[in-house]
Write a protein that binds this DNA or RNA. Structure first.
Lengths: 343, 343
DNA sequence: CGACCAATTGACAGCGTTGTCAGTCAGCCG
DNA sequence: CGGCTGACTGACAACGCTGTCAATTGGTCG
């Protein structure tokens, strides 16, 4: 009554185990009639190949690792990002018959490096997807490069022709958000930046500047506050901005968490939203829908990005015919109640 | 330059591979001097056992599966729950040298069952942790029971002496929240229930009733609205409750998402919170901190629960000396701005 | 001193696949 | 009709480790 093995199938089908192996792995050069005999034996016995045996013999692990900034230790605890990445990665893994290992990590922690090395040693993954902002950190990518494990950067923030990556249009979409705000009549549009070490954040800021420029609004340093992506830094930024003689009529924050901080502060000061102040965020976290007023923001196609990263990773075993360059999947504006015309 | 194998270590250390295996697996009956020779050979070669080979030979997979309601398809998209479960499970896995596979699933989908069977066939996990509300569904648990794979239910909602599980005090903590509201002077305390098929939700409602009764407040059916855990159902519930001749002065929702709906509705009707209406939620999702006013809620120790479930699962290979009964890890009240005294 | 026991070690047979390579077989060409 | 080719199939050796069981060692006890 123990699990049937490839031998059982071979016996039942009256062929060799190698032929069964061929059928199971969809290899060519098996006569159709043979194939269907084997298939029927397989389903009769409800045979499933033993993964460990297969991995051992084929020198692969069938494992894909997804690495992302641990939301439990991040200043902007955006679990929704992690979950969306997971969703897409899982989807692609399912299709490719791989299993997904998640590896949230806190890059501020000294032990990231050894943890990654141990992960590699233990699991020998077939491929790795590294999400922003970690995708831009050598500490994170080096262990994989050293071990010769193929990896794809998710949203690396700048193109590279040497390697494949999947990104989104941070800059362009931020420009678009800025133009949208301008189109509502806003001229004093502030920007709350996050950690500008993170490329995505830097790009968002550049997009903001571009957007202003396109609309003929001159950029003013005083309207840009740098935060650290946290709610509290959103609060602090709003406090400074709203204390100005002539406060901005719109505030665009580089993430939803800071936008929430801005919103709370504005409301505590008695401002009515959006009539007295428009607020926009970035990420479309779950939060955004539930704030009051609900938050206008930007949605990154994280699931799709992760999915396409994983499938690209797995599609080509050959080093050199893996695609190069960056695949860009555009983000979209999500207009909600927190933005409105200048009154 | 290829990976060193156990044979290389054995040669270098001048012992048999079996002895190396003993050292690697921390087995007893190895002379200290031998052990350290082997250890030095291991570190010299930077040897890591090949997981697949080990799994194949030992008939184990070293894999633990975590199953939970997929937040991307749930009516209450609470990613924070998933992430916290993952965090705890990962912690325990790391300690036990296992890898974690996540399996978010949408129980409303017909294909859950086959998906689980396929998961089992593919991965043969050493153990499985099933989080509420899935932990109470036979559709989910049966495949594992059938396959003889040990599993632990997380927050099963009722004790069972036959099997081990990890839960929390839904009922008692809900009673406590109710008492807390009463202590602020509230007498008309409404309850917005979720899907009462879910045991946790049912328990929360019972706790609410108990709390009322302890405070000498009589239970009124009309103050209980059943929702479906979604934001929208929170909105609907608030609409009905606030339309009463004598609306409640406090509303306790069975999750944060519905509480957010209640809050938004109350604010749109121009109520000041908490002076005119106190609102409490359940879950302490990330959302709760960022709402304005921030939400008083209940925090379940999900990470700890998952961690203890995984370690219990792995600690005892012997069927019969695995612990029985339910380990209860208490939830705690998180008091924020959305609740206050009756004015 | 020899028997005896527990601690320690090793030889070897799997574990269930895949990769390699050597057939076998049918059809086609000259 | 013999040889050749390409499609198909199978035998068998890995893959790197653990489990089993026998052998060896070192010490203790009578």
């Amino acid at each position: 009554m123990s699990k049937p093995t490839i031998d059982d199938v071979a016996n039942l089908a009256g062929v060799s185990i190698k032929t069964v192996s061929r059928v199971v792995n969809n290899e060519p050069n098996v006569r159709d009639s043979t194939r269907s005999q084997v298939e029927s034996a397989i389903s009769q016995l409800n045979y499933r190949p033993n993964i460990s045996a297969r991995n051992l013999a084929s020198h692969r692990s069938n494992l894909v690792v997804l690495i992302y900034d641990d939301p439990s230790t991040s200043t902007s605890p955006n679990e929704s990002i992690a979950v969306r990445l997971q969703h897409g990665a899982l989807q692609a893994c399912r299709q490719a018959n791989r299993e997904l290992l998640i590896h949230p990590c806190n890059y501020r922690d000294k032990s990231v490096r050894p943890a990654l090395r141990s992960l590699i040693a233990r699991t020998r993954p077939d491929g790795v997807v590294i999400a922003a902002p970690l995708s831009n950190m050598a500490t994170i990518t080096k262990p994989f490069a050293d071990a010769g494990i193929p990896f794809v950067r998710l949203s690396p923030g700048r193109k590279s022709t040497a390697e494949f990556s999947v990104g989104t249009n941070d800059r362009a979409i931020s420009a678009e958000m800025t133009r949208y705000l301008a189109s509502l009549g806003h001229r004093d549009i502030a920007f709350v930046s996050g950690n500008e070490q993170e490329r995505a954040v830097a790009n968002r800021k550049i997009g903001y500047q571009e957007g202003l420029s396109v609309c003929g609004i001159s950029y003013r340093d005083s309207l840009v506050i740098s935060g650290d992506s946290s709610f509290e830094s959103g609060v602090a930024a709003a406090e400074r901005l709203l204390a100005r003689k002539k406060p901005p009529t719109a505030i665009f924050a580089a993430n939803d968490c800071m936008a929430a901080g801005v919103m709370q502060t504005a409301q505590k000061k008695g401002l009515r939203l959006p009539s007295q102040l428009s607020i926009a965020g970035f990420d479309d976290s779950t939060l955004a829908k539930y704030l009051n007023p609900s938050l206008t923001t930007i949605q990154q196609p994280l699931a799709k990005m992760a999915e396409s990263a994983v499938s690209a990773l797995l599609s080509n075993r050959d080093e050199h015919d893996r695609p190069k360059g960056m695949t860009v999947i555009p983000s979209v504006l999500v207009l909600r109640e927190s933005t409105g015309p200048v009154l």
